[in-house]
């Protein structure tokens, strides 16, 4: 396989554009479609409609119905046929319309997609990307606001990533498409309309990678670990905390499998305190995993227990209640206060 680095053209001046996260994904996929004929998109309503969030807007018009495929309304069928297409040499990018609709495909993802490379002793690769708009805060109906990342992170063979910014959305979707491994690509739908400058690098420009976290705000007193939609929450909390004299270091995990423990551990060794925040339920979650690893690696540097902030062990509540369920700036700051008080 040609690696992305092989195709870099370092002499080109890179244009930038102010884009929403959703549009950055569109342009990232468009770049991949233009440069790699094996890339194709498939999903429900992604063609003429451009997807329910318009993330594939205009792509069927440019690349035709054989490369931007409106599939029958059947998630298992989408992922199952994507596996067959990948075996034939294609790089399918599947759109699941909403987080709560991925479960009909769960068997195909966990028993087939995740395991084919190992089952075949490495003879088959299945470079399939599964895009899932996830998370809440948009006032949606049931099954439209969930955070299922742990179910996939617990399955060996899958990579699970989530961009938090338009710039990461643009590069990470291209890196996911180029990855020979299957990638669960979680899009924080509550942040689809966030705007930021994005460097429209040419296809194949090496990005930060699909396996690295990033310190997005340096700080001294406590490490906040976030990803996807809660990175924004953590940054807002850090501003408030700064006014109150507490310096928070914010880490955007970017990837959940693998989890970049090195970046987290290095940060906590400096701050001595750690709070993990995600929209998914706290129990058995990413926060539990981070807390366990931090405890193992930084036991003697820790000044306080690692605390977790996130959803409750309930079904995602009706939208009029979701602000009670979602980790808010206040709830995060409450955890910060508790950790700082130890």
């Amino acid at each position: 396989m040609t690696t992305m680095a092989d195709r870099t053209d370092a002499t080109t001046t890179v244009p930038t554009e102010k884009l929403t996260l959703a549009r950055a994904l569109t342009l990232g996929m468009r770049t991949a479609l233009r440069h790699d004929p094996s890339v194709l998109l498939m999903g429900e309503d992604i063609g003429r409609l451009g997807g329910v969030f318009r993330v594939t807007d205009g792509l069927q018009a440019e690349f035709g119905p054989d490369r931007v495929v409106d599939t029958p309304l059947a998630e298992s069928g989408i992922v199952g046929t994507a596996i067959g297409l990948a075996m034939r040499g294609y790089r399918p990018v599947c759109e699941i319309q909403f987080d709560g609709f991925v479960f009909p495909a769960f068997d195909q993802i966990t028993t087939m997609l995740a395991k084919l490379h190992a089952r075949s002793l490495g003879r088959i690769t299945v470079p399939v990307v599964i895009r899932i708009p996830y998370g809440g805060g948009i006032g949606a109906v049931e099954h439209h606001s969930e955070s299922p990342e742990v179910l996939f992170a617990h399955t060996a063979g899958l990579r699970v990533v989530s961009p938090a910014t338009p710039a990461d959305a643009y590069t990470m979707i291209q890196e996911a498409i180029a990855s020979p491994d299957p990638v669960i690509f979680l899009e924080p739908k509550g942040r689809y309309w966030d705007k930021a400058e994005v460097a429209l690098t040419p296809y194949g420009t090496p990005g930060a990678g699909l396996d690295k976290a990033r310190v997005v705000r340096p700080g001294a007193d406590l490490t906040v670990v976030a990803y996807g939609p809660t990175v924004h929450t953590a940054l807002r909390a850090a501003e408030v905390a700064a006014e109150e004299g507490t310096s928070l270091e914010v880490i955007d995990l970017r990837t959940i499998s693998p989890l970049d423990h090195d970046t987290v551990v290095e940060s906590v060794r400096g701050t001595g305190r750690c709070v993990v925040v995600h929209e998914a339920a706290v129990s058995h979650g990413v926060g539990a995993e981070v807390a366990a690893r931090v405890t193992e690696e930084c036991f003697f540097e820790l000044e306080a227990p690692v605390l977790r902030v996130g959803g409750y062990h309930t079904p995602y509540p009706p939208s009029r209640l979701e602000h009670h369920y979602l980790p808010s700036v206040d709830r995060l700051l409450d955890a910060v206060d508790r950790a700082m008080a130890v």
Binding site: T81, G84, L85, M87, Y90, D107
Partner: peptide, 25 residues
């Protein structure tokens, strides 16, 4: 010849996807 698995009925979808690739080729 693809590998079989013991998950009953999962593989016909792979066959169809493969066939969709044959069409595109």
């Amino acid at each position: 010849v693809h590998l079989f698995t013991l998950v009953v009925g999962a593989h016909p979808l792979h066959a169809v996807g493969y066939a969709m690739g044959v069409q595109r080729d």
